[in-house]
């Protein structure tokens, strides 16, 4: 398993990186954490002629906060997400979920932006981004633009990014006060992608649901937000019955691909299980 030859480029600014991507065209790929790209290259499924390594662009890493908006640099690693005090305080779903991604070493290299930009429905951050109402900051030759998560994921390995775009930051809103959250991920073993996973963010007001997000990982061609399931709970005092009903609504929009993890029936059923468990856990944490 040996990667093919390529030219290596290491820009130190976003501008420089975008310039390289524009001039090199579609034969160039961005090297972020590399834990999706390098294995693909070793298997010679991917054979880019140029790699643009954006690991040394310092402006792409780190977490900052302005009011309710928390901005996470795209090259912030999973372990940095796990350790970040701002995220733990304001969007604790992200650090908790990141612990379920890959393994300790891979989390030192894997980045939140790489996870999102890859467009792989098996990755966890797309569903988390949807659950956190994230907005992506994308820089291309024409400058920066903002794309909400809901418009970012277009299909399997297909996002709103152009070949010469770089995802530079992910901005999320701090959770409402007292919000509960949960990410339940069923996997075969450490390091595996989800057989099915569900993120839930919920806030209560007077015992009734005032804010709810239910999103799903690896249960369709992209991460999915389960609007109908949210509608079941929205404004309600949640009962076990309603949770089951919400899970059914979520299962109804699942369109998973059969693989060694299971067939469509199993994965859909597991979506239901994960949705129920995530809602229950999120509620237990909400106050």
């Amino acid at each position: 398993m040996i990667p093919p030859s390529f030219e290596y480029h290491r820009p130190s600014t976003v501008e420089e990186a975008v310039g390289l991507l524009s001039s090199l065209g579609s034969e160039a790929k961005i090297l972020a954490g590399g834990h999706s790209l390098l294995p693909m290259m070793k298997l010679r499924f991917a054979m880019p002629e140029h790699l643009v390594d954006i690991n040394r662009i310092s402006e792409l890493s780190g977490v900052s906060v302005v009011g309710d908006n928390i901005t996470i640099g795209a090259m912030t690693t999973e372990n940095a997400v796990i350790a970040d005090p701002i995220l733990n305080e304001k969007v604790p779903l992200l650090p908790e979920a990141a612990k379920l991604i890959a393994d300790p070493q891979v989390r030192n290299r894997g980045t939140i932006g790489g996870d999102i930009a890859h467009g792989d429905p098996a990755n966890d951050h797309p569903a988390l981004a949807l659950a956190c109402d994230a907005v992506m900051t994308v820089v291309g030759p024409a400058g920066a633009r903002q794309i909400p998560a809901s418009e970012f994921f277009l299909g399997t390995y297909w996002t709103a990014l152009n070949d010469d775009d770089i995802l530079t930051a992910i901005t999320v809103k701090a959770f409402p006060d007292g919000a509960g959250y949960s990410y339940r991920k069923l996997k075969r073993k450490t390091g595996d992608w989800a057989t099915a996973a569900c993120a839930v963010v919920v806030a209560l007001s007077g015992g009734k649901v005032s804010h709810i997000r239910i999103t799903l990982t690896n249960l369709g061609p992209t991460a999915i937000r389960a609007h109908d399931a949210e509608a079941v709970l929205s404004g309600q005092a949640v009962t076990d019955e309603l949770i089951k009903h919400a899970a059914e609504k979520a299962m109804a929009i699942c369109d998973p691909a059969e693989d060694l993890r299971g067939d469509v029936e199993y994965k859909t059923a597991m979506a239901g299980q994960m949705v129920q468990r995530a809602i229950a856990e999120a509620l237990s944490r909400a106050n």
Partner: peptide
């Protein structure tokens, strides 16, 4: 394993554990 599961290639880079099978030597400059 060569696909970053087994960790037999783990080394320390700048104070972090990294799997050296999925990291380019040029990245260590």
């Amino acid at each position: 394993c060569e696909t970053s599961q087994c960790g037999a290639c783990t080394v320390d880079i700048d104070g972090e554990s990294v799997k050296a099978c999925t990291h380019l030597a040029v990245q260590c400059d």
